[in-house]
Nucleic acid binder design. Structure first.
Lengths: 229, 229
DNA sequence: AGGATGTACTGATAAATATCATATTTTTAG
DNA sequence: CTAAAAATATGATATTTATCAGTACATCCT
């Protein structure tokens, strides 16, 4: 039997915790759960969404394709985050595509449940607003980082971010393994440049690698690098 | 005598139009109007705001200082826009500073009026949410532009943006005159690089200049440049 | 297992952009 | 109105980053 939103642990991380019992029941009755394998798409850029996706497990990259054919990853969404909110609220097509970067389990929630609650329950709306305010601040930070920091600094920062947000496995590797291409798309650089800098970090003893996997060896030095020495 | 929000034209551009008569009256009674000269600061990065600022006239740059001492302009806010909303909603210090880039008139609205309405009037909250969703989308676009387009393309785009959003004067110059440094801070590049490209555009007949003032001569070519030919 | 395909890596070079130095023009202040 | 200060402009050069070419791994697939 499908699990109920009322008992879902990830709910405490997102705006759904501000829903009333009845509202939550309605969401739970109308939601569908979806299992995705790494690499599968949740939605594409320009799609009209009929609802939002709540991440139960795994990680999705939200990215936008630019004219020159490169993807820019704007955000990595994980447990508890609600994807597609922005488009549903603004009643627009999505400006980003969402693709699983690890195996995932997501719940699709039809937009009617959301929009109805947005109109009736100010607690919920305010909660969503707070989340969006947070996302906006993060986006501002990304803008400043991309335009003012070197690629080396941004890659160092990305590794620290990945450790902080997704943790490490028992062998000391970052728990979320991204391809070199994905790393370069987070950072906004050419894949070769990213690889070159990863090799350099390895030579300098800042990180260790095994295949795609990357582990942080000298967090302090990486932090200094991000700050600009 | 001070004018009343109820009759303020700029209100129709922002979330305040979703307020009830009583709420609006309360805002109007508690607001104060402030006149700023070009270059003056509305608030600084890290300030705790006791309210928001509604722009009646003029333009403000919202920027963030980076570790290397350069400012990155994240947004230009003009008539009808509400500045400081994000921080007040998230109950955080500001992540950006706001400085007038032209003479301005702004209304300061104490945060109590705002937060109270946010909790009581879902129409208003939803309206604020829609605006923030829009800002977030724009921020995503900026991220992609900065990381994927050349400085030349971004400067061309900035000029088209300035024309579209702030218009031209009778002589065909952009109505909003920014210093070369501000232009470089919008685009995220070194001032000298921006100046060099402006000179090049002038030589190629894409724009004309007179002192700081810049006018668009060949909009089509600029647009092609932004798209990547 | 073994070819096939994609991903990771490295080197050589080119292109884009930043930095430093300095000249020129514009704006500001007295 | 004029001297000083600030902003704009341009040249020379250094640095950063992208691109192109090619090799080495790894993993996928029947």
């Amino acid at each position: 039997m499908e699990s109920r939103c009322e008992n879902c642990i990830v709910r405490q991380f997102n705006s759904l915790r501000a829903m009333s019992k009845e509202e939550l029941k309605q969401v739970s009755d109308s939601k569908t759960t979806k299992v995705l394998k790494k690499g599968e798409s949740i939605f594409g850029e320009g799609d009209k969404l009929n609802g939002v996706y709540c991440v139960r497990s795994g990680v999705s990259k939200l990215s936008k394709l630019s004219a020159n054919g490169k993807d820019q990853i704007v955000k990595l969404a994980s447990k508890g985050e609600v994807i597609g909110q922005r488009s549903v609220i603004a009643e627009e097509s999505t400006n980003l595509s969402a693709i699983a970067v690890s195996d995932m389990e997501v719940c699709f929630i039809p937009k009617e449940s959301i929009t109805h609650t947005l109109q009736k329950n100010p607690d919920f709306t305010l909660e969503v607003l707070r989340h969006m305010a947070h996302d906006l601040k993060e986006a501002d930070d990304v803008i400043v980082n991309i335009s003012q920091k070197t690629v080396k600094q941004r890659i160092a920062e990305a590794f620290l971010y990945l450790k902080k947000n997704f943790g490490e496995d028992k062998d000391g590797f970052l728990a979320l393994t991204l391809s070199r291409e994905d790393i370069s798309n987070v950072v906004g650089t050419a894949t070769e440049s990213a690889i070159r800098i990863i090799s350099e970090f390895k030579k300098k003893g800042l990180i260790h690698t095994s295949g795609k996997k990357i582990g942080i060896k000298d967090e302090k030095k990486l932090l200094e690098m991000v700050e600009g020495f």
